[in-house]
Measured scan of single mutants.
Amino acid sequence: SEEELEEFAKEVLRRGITIIVNGIRITEVEIFVKVLREILEKR
């Protein structure tokens, strides 16, 4: 749901943790923004 997305976004921003994806360091915020864009483009 959109509320869950908002909560996830807030949690990500609070933690600001960097994770490893395919050997490249990407912040969770960047991943969230990318996923959010993909979701919005599909609408």
Rank of each mutant, 00 (worst) to 15 (best):
R14E: 04
E38K: 12
G23C: 14
E11L: 10
R43A: 10
L40W: 14
I39S: 03
R14I: 04
E30T: 09
L13K: 00
F32P: 00
T27D: 06
R25Y: 09
L36C: 06
V29Q: 02
A9V: 09
E7G: 05
E28A: 11
F32V: 04
I31W: 11
E28L: 11
E4M: 11
V21N: 02
F8K: 00
I19M: 03
E41Q: 13
G16Y: 15
L13N: 00
R15G: 05
I24H: 08
E3Q: 12
I17E: 08
I20Q: 04
L40E: 02
L36F: 05
G23P: 03
F32Q: 00
L13Y: 05
K42V: 06
I19R: 00
E7W: 13
L5A: 02
I39Q: 04
K42D: 07
L40Q: 03
R14T: 04
F8Q: 01
R25L: 13
R14D: 03
T18I: 15
G16A: 10
G23H: 05
I39N: 01
E30F: 13
E41G: 12
E41P: 04
E38S: 09
E11N: 10
V29D: 01
L13T: 00
E41N: 14
T27G: 03
E30M: 13
F8C: 13
F32I: 06
E6D: 04
T27M: 07
E2I: 15
K42R: 12
G16P: 03
R14N: 06
E28S: 15
A9C: 14
L5G: 02
F32C: 00
T18E: 12
V12P: 00
L5I: 06
E6W: 15
I19V: 10
V33M: 12
E41I: 11
L40M: 08
T27L: 09
R37G: 01
E2A: 14
L36P: 01
K10C: 13
I20D: 02
K10D: 01
I20H: 06
V21P: 00
G23V: 08
L5R: 01
I39L: 13
E3K: 13
V12L: 15
I20A: 04
V12W: 11
E28K: 08
I26L: 06
R37I: 07
K10R: 15
R14C: 02
V35S: 02
R43E: 05
I20M: 09
T18S: 09
K42C: 11
I24N: 04
I31S: 10
A9P: 02
S1E: 06
E2H: 11
L13H: 01
I20R: 06
I24P: 04
K10N: 04
T18D: 06
A9S: 03
V21R: 04
I31N: 06
E28Q: 10
G16D: 03
E7K: 12
E41D: 10
L40Y: 08
L40F: 12
R15V: 03
E30K: 11
K42E: 08
I17P: 03
L36G: 00
K42T: 09
E11V: 07
L13S: 01
E28P: 03
I20G: 01
I31E: 14
I26R: 03
G16F: 15
G23M: 11
E3P: 07
I26V: 07
L40S: 02
E11S: 12
E38G: 07
I31H: 11
E28W: 11
E30W: 15
E11K: 13
V29A: 06
R43Q: 08
N22I: 06
R15T: 05
L36K: 01
E4D: 09
S1P: 06
V35F: 14
R15M: 06
L5Q: 03
R15I: 03
E28H: 06
I24V: 10
A9D: 01
L40C: 13
I31K: 09
I24R: 06
T18Q: 12
R15H: 04
L13A: 00
F32L: 15
E30N: 09
L5P: 01
F32S: 00
E41H: 11
E7Y: 09
E41F: 14
T18F: 13
V35W: 15
K34F: 11
V33D: 00
E3S: 12
K42L: 11
E6M: 15
E28T: 14
T27H: 08
F32W: 03
I17S: 05
I19L: 08
K34Q: 09
L40I: 08
A9Y: 06
R25M: 08
E38L: 14
I26D: 03
V35G: 01
E6A: 12
R37S: 03
R43D: 05
E7H: 08
E11I: 10
K10E: 04
I26F: 04
I19N: 00
E28G: 06
E3T: 12
V33W: 10
V29C: 10
F32K: 01
V12D: 00
R14H: 04
T18P: 13
L5F: 07
I17W: 15
E6R: 15
E41M: 13
S1G: 08
I17T: 07
L5D: 03
I39C: 13
V12E: 00
R43M: 14
L5T: 01
A9E: 01
E41K: 12
E11G: 08
S1V: 10
R37Y: 04
L36S: 00
G16K: 06
I17A: 09
E28C: 04
L13F: 15
E30G: 09
I24E: 06
R15W: 12
L13D: 00
K10T: 05
R15P: 02
I26N: 04
K10A: 08
E7D: 07
I19Y: 03
E6I: 15
T18A: 12
E6G: 04
F8G: 01
V33C: 11
I19T: 01
L13C: 01
E41W: 11
E11P: 01
L5K: 02
I20W: 09
E6C: 15
E4C: 14
V33L: 12
I39K: 02
V12Q: 04
R43Y: 14
I20N: 02
I17M: 12
N22T: 05
E41S: 13
G16L: 15
I17Q: 07
E2S: 11
K34V: 04
E6F: 15
K10F: 07
